[in-house]
């Protein structure tokens, strides 16, 4: 009975250690006001065709305006 309890405890501890390894070290707050879980701005991945002379939209002034205005 005593030995069995020790085994169960060991198994339980192993499971807890495993779970702890999977969970981020620090719990993060729910995002609010357009911020992601880190509190920073949400990053969205958007697919778009690009033309040879478009330049990089990421560096585009309008992109920054939309990023600022959208959320």
């Amino acid at each position: 009975m005593k030995k069995s309890s020790r085994i169960s405890l060991a198994v339980l501890l192993s499971v807890l250690v495993f779970i702890a390894g999977c969970v981020p070290a620090k719990s993060k707050p729910d995002n609010v006001s357009g911020n992601d879980a880190d509190g920073g701005p949400v990053t969205v991945n958007i697919f778009t065709p690009k033309f040879p002379n478009d330049g990089e939209y990421s560096e585009n002034e309008f992109t920054k305006l939309v990023e600022k205005n959208s959320i």
Partner: peptide, 13 residues
Amino acid sequence: MKINWIYANQDAA
């Protein structure tokens, strides 16, 4: 919001 553009060339879009 930050936009991460994923580009495709015009002829392959």
